[in-house]
Nucleic acid binder design. Structure first.
Length: 121
DNA sequence: AACTTGACGAGGG
DNA sequence: CCCCTCGCCAAGT
């Protein structure tokens, strides 16, 4: 697909993000992998930056380390982390949450037993 | 058309 | 654990 003129390029990302349940998260890389060709973690981040905060639970997309990449932008208080915490996600003192606990996989993309994220806490 | 900039991520030191 | 490099690709200059 030709990303350049495809308005749905962004919509394809939001479509999945809207399905993430409260209190659960997905990573940029995870979304890129599911979307496939033309998408990379970086472009997914770019798309999320322009997300309609009213209709997309943008706060549920974090980086592969379990932290919020918006930390520097919302200084001194990280808005994203705050919202996630209000949804029940617990972050440690370094601003990381346990992906093993909160990572969410869309139907049909559940990980294999042996490749579960082995991260944090 | 060339160059730069990211809400990224894997790999190496 | 921290820091750096490099690949990635849409957008803006």
């Amino acid at each position: 697909m030709n990303p350049a003129n495809d308005k749905n390029y962004r919509e394809r990302v939001y479509e999945i993000v809207r399905k993430i349940p409260p209190g659960r998260v997905m990573t940029y890389g995870q979304l890129a992998e599911i979307l496939g060709e033309g998408y990379t973690p970086r472009t997914v981040g770019y798309v999320m930056h322009g997300a309609d905060t009213e209709n997309v639970p943008w706060q549920r997309v974090i980086n592969s380390q379990g932290g919020c990449s918006t930390a520097k932008m919302t200084m001194p208080v990280n808005l994203q982390q705050g919202i996630l915490e209000s949804e029940g996600v617990v972050f440690n003192e370094k601003g990381k949450c346990a992906l093993v606990t909160y990572l969410w996989f869309p139907e049909g993309y559940e990980p294999e037993e042996d490749q579960q994220p082995s991260l944090l806490e």
